[in-house]
Design a protein around this nucleic acid. Structure first.
Length: 155
DNA sequence: GCCAACGTTGGC
DNA sequence: GCCAACGTTGGC
């Protein structure tokens, strides 16, 4: 089982929005970045655990744990001309963009802030979240990184 | 194939 | 609101 971190802007789709979804819901972000796409399309599996992170907000932080709840599937918005996520270069036969469904496992009582995560940069090493200039919205989290961040939750 | 211009992300 | 960093686009 792999571990991940996905970003979401709380103004658009927050951990509470996810909590309000019965069962499971499509990861809203409609990723249009090849690196993130490849992680979703090629490596995500149902059951994988995910840190749900609030970005572009006064207190950027991991705010909950989610689970991958589907196999990756083509983003239907990419081939819908009416959608704001329409990509004229995406071919329905050979889709360019993929999504997964996620479901909430637990909301953290105390979010793990980006500030706190950065304080452990030496231990967390190459975690993409704290790499300089990072903008990736879907990223892998190594098992050791996952365990360490989970230990911060308990602290 | 280079690279300047542009749009977007996201922390602060 | 600002702006640094980055990915994409398109002219050449």
């Amino acid at each position: 089982m792999k571990h991940w971190l996905v970003k979401s802007e709380p103004e658009v789709f927050s951990i509470d929005d996810l909590a309000a979804c019965p069962g499971k819901t499509r990861y809203w972000k409609h990723v249009r970045n090849y690196q993130a796409r490849n992680f979703m399309r090629d490596d995500m599996k149902p059951g994988d655990r995910v840190f749900f992170y609030h970005s572009n907000t006064p207190l950027p932080a991991i705010v909950g744990i989610a689970e991958i709840a589907s196999d990756p599937y083509p983003d239907p918005e990419a081939t819908n001309p009416e959608s704001r996520y329409f990509d004229p270069k995406s071919d329905p036969v050979n889709p360019r963009w993929f999504l997964v469904d996620i479901k909430l496992v637990s909301k953290l009582d105390h979010p793990i802030s980006l500030k706190e995560i950065k304080e452990h940069a030496v231990i967390l090493g190459d975690l993409a979240l704290i790499r300089r200039g990072n903008r990736l919205s879907v990223m892998p989290v190594a098992d050791e990184q996952w365990d360490f961040i989970m230990s911060l939750k308990a602290a």
